[in-house]
Write a protein that binds this DNA or RNA. Structure first.
Lengths: 230, 230
DNA sequence: CCACAAACATGAGTATCTCTCACATTTGCA
DNA sequence: TGCAAATGTGAGAGATACTCATGTTTGTGG
């Protein structure tokens, strides 16, 4: 479901996501099992209602073992969020890698958001994890970071085929597209399936019209939010 | 700062936001004071770190008095959220009331989002309250409800001056515009001021181009997400 | 195979927090 | 002024995140 990814490449503050690096096979499997159990609980009742004792029980381990690996409850959510983000980034990169001209970017856009949407549909827990992240300032930063990474990937391709457009304009346009794309996906998976489909279609059309359909550099001039940082 | 508004017009489930309706002047003032103190704490350290004992102490009352009025911690956040939402709705309604033709809708749009943005800037705690809401399913619904209300207000005016456009298309377009508008505002107030300004400008241009500039009914055909419900 | 150190596992216990409830005080009103 | 209703109080019950001293398992060098 979710491929292996080294946990916590973006630690909050100085705290690593894992308290102890599992070196033995048994404990490495255990960490994976903990995350799988936590995912199931979050999906079922939300991360707020998830109890650490519940995670331990479902995983068939003791509370102490849980805290061997995860310094606190937020670390579990953070690790899951970072894994999903890594998957999203890979998916974005894979779609954009196919693009060989500016004209193709338009098609890639449409496919990209479709694939992105499918991912959200396949893993509804992504939305719950995102919700849990919003309450914590450090975790919220991870979410913003994901928009920056996705925007960067898009901007790199975009800039390659639109060399006349100022890079700063492209960067900021790409960032906004990705961020509002995420917002759109979360809205879409919050409503009934048919309506969600239409919402995603609407967003795609809006973006294609504004940022791609106007020809080289045309769309980018629409927005110029150079150097967005928090 | 925040005008008086009857608390909890949209109770979550069957639970009223206020446990007891304050009938005497003293207790009515006390409820206001509690909310003001809670706002200050949320602004300072976030609602997650807000302690009920801290709110009581800052308000100069006992824990028991706090619970006389608010059945739980979420009720405080909910009441604040509903008040802000009411203010936002009023602001939206006020701007749209000035519109007397479809052409004017374009200008109203620009002004509307500027005013909306100013409100977010003036009350940065709105973002924190929104963050707190995302963790709770019932509170998340309030947020979605606000997009529906704003979208409804917009759709009513829009439909009046674009009678040929299918109402369902207008409804869904207005809903998406308002929802992504909220997302944009929250992003804008999360970054530095100058960048936030540019983000809002970018969104305005995007929306104006797509949904208004294309002439009567033109924009609405872009999206058709009829009857969005959760 | 053994011994031993390092890694790992355990769960009772601690600190902290939300929320309750039995009782005290204040208010509005006849 | 006196009484009933409204309001105020804070010790404490219950729940939960997280710790730590101690026990168990694993890999490894001889």
């Amino acid at each position: 479901m979710i491929p292996d990814a080294s946990p916590s490449t973006i630690p909050a503050d100085d705290e690593p996501a894992l308290r102890r690096t599992p070196s033995q096979k048994r404990s490495r499997e255990r960490v994976e099992h903990i995350l799988a159990c936590a995912t199931a609980i979050i999906q079922e009742k939300g991360s707020d209602a998830m109890r650490m004792s519940e995670v331990a029980e479902k995983a068939g381990i003791s509370i102490g073992s849980l805290y061997q690996y995860f310094p606190d409850k937020a670390a579990i959510v953070r690790t899951l969020a970072e894994r999903y983000n890594a998957v999203c980034s890979e998916c974005i990169a894979a779609e954009l890698a196919k693009v060989t001209s500016l004209a193709e970017l338009r098609d890639a856009f449409a496919v990209l958001f479709d694939v992105y949407y499918d991912m959200f549909l396949a893993e509804p827990v992504m939305r719950d994890i995102w919700s849990a992240m919003q309450a914590d300032k450090a975790l919220r930063e991870i979410d913003l970071q994901q928009s920056r990474i996705g925007g960067q990937l898009l901007a790199d391709v975009w800039a390659r085929f639109a060399p006349d457009t100022p890079r700063a304009a492209i960067d900021s346009a790409a960032f906004l597209i990705m961020h509002l794309g995420d917002c759109t996906m979360r809205l879409a998976v919050s409503v009934e399936r048919a309506q969600g489909d239409q919402i995603v279609e609407a967003y795609k059309r809006m973006i294609l019209r504004d940022f791609v359909a106007d020809g080289p550099g045309g769309g980018a001039s629409l927005i110029d939010i150079s150097g967005v940082r928090s």
